[in-house]
Design a protein around this nucleic acid. Structure first.
Lengths: 130, 130
DNA sequence: CTAGACCTTGTCGCCGGTGTCAAGGCAACG
DNA sequence: CGTTGCCTTGACACCGGCGACAAGGTCTAG
């Protein structure tokens, strides 16, 4: 399988696949003419990468999962390194949820306050004008 | 007040203040020698900018708030444009909280699954070896 | 022979808020 | 007059995951 076919089957671009390669995530063989040649297993790998990216992982975080798949495991999640990353990411997400919750509260209060102020100003204006 | 003083008093850098200016957020006068001269009110403006940035606003979103302050209001929040932005941002934050919640759940499940798999594998290995 | 559909490497651009350095003007003090 | 310390504009660097384009090699069909 050449890069174009893999790209299409994985729903991404050749540019992206080459980018993953420079970051050590995908490893094609080379045919005599220098073309990248991928076997079926790489399709799985690329899907894993895309799934994790979609969840908010960076390419560096994804490497252990790919290694895990490549080591023959049915899932990329089961190896110790992957689990460690999962734990860390979960903690990060929790922290971010906290912060975002705080921001939400602040925004909400700010909005409520602003609306109250506007109403008061409006009332005063009407009183003054009457 | 020159730019250095404002920067120090606002807890930021001169670079940052000039950047805000190029984006229409801060408007100093110029003295005869070309130096930027700020009046006291700008300190308030810069604080508003920084507070909103910290909450996750972009510079473009902040412009209405600055205009509102500059229009003489005690708070930058009370003008219609500001309120509109606040509403929009609140909605964005809510949407993001949703997504992040989903991600959290997925991550949590994935982690739980991975740990279960590891335990099962471990058990099978021990049984086989015994 | 040629057109076209692949492939290769390399490079620049984006987004947003700053850090940082360069080259030069201005003010104040000794 | 020189040093010091402020100011000016301008421009490059960063981060991350690509898009987009250039210039060229390769293979196949007509």
């Amino acid at each position: 399988m050449l890069i174009g076919e893999l790209a299409e089957r994985a729903g991404t671009s050749t540019r992206t696949l080459r980018y993953y390669e420079t970051h050590g995530l995908v490893r094609p063989r080379r045919s005599a003419n220098g073309y990248r040649v991928y076997d079926e297993a790489e399709l799985r790998v690329v899907h894993e990468i895309r799934a994790l990216l979609a969840v908010g992982f960076g390419l560096d975080d994804i490497r252990p999962f790919v290694a895990c798949l490549r080591a023959g495991h049915a899932s990329g999640d089961v190896c110790p390194d992957s689990v460690a990353v999962l734990r860390r990411k979960l903690a990060e997400v929790d922290a971010y949820l906290d912060r975002l919750g705080t921001v939400r509260r602040q925004l909400h209060d700010q909005l409520a306050q602003a609306i109250i102020q506007r109403e008061e100003t409006c009332l005063r204006t009407r009183q003054r004008d009457s």
